[in-house]
Amino acid sequence: MKVFSEEGKTMKKITLEVNGKKVSKEVADHTVLSVFLREVLNLTGTHVGCDTSQCGACVVHADGKSIKSCTALAADLDGSKVTTIEGLVSNGKMHPMQEAFKKLHGLQCGFCTPGMVMSAIDLLKHKKNPSDKEIRDWLEGNICRCTGYQNIVAAVKEAATKM
């Protein structure tokens, strides 16, 4: 996969733990994390909707915190632990947040969903039982065009009872 120009770039070897696995790769300095995940590691579950950190489709966890992977340099995250949507399933079982989204129809086209789920999980780390308003405020950085957010809010509440 070649996303970058060969000309005038510097490459750096970076080592990250992605979804529990250590990966070492040479990347161009201007590689952002979303490109690193999608194009270098072929983890295409992380989506790019706006590429300028407004829509939130690209949200992943870096060292336990949700971030927008389109706006973080891969080199900057050298040494970090990154979890993507692909890393949530354990022993073939979906994460309670994923289960809740399925149960309550918290997704339609699925494009914003990975970022939405990753962001919502981070919320529950901070607030065990968030109110509707707290959920809606927290999801300010995740745009969904399909669901009108109602079932997403319901799913996050449902997940809160299971986590």
Binding site: S53, G56, S66, A72, S119, D122, L123, E140, G141, N142
Partner: peptide, 9 residues
């Protein structure tokens, strides 16, 4: 400021 992900970075 911004959203939670912006505040995290």
């Amino acid at each position: 400021i911004g959203d939670p992900q912006v505040r995290n970075r």
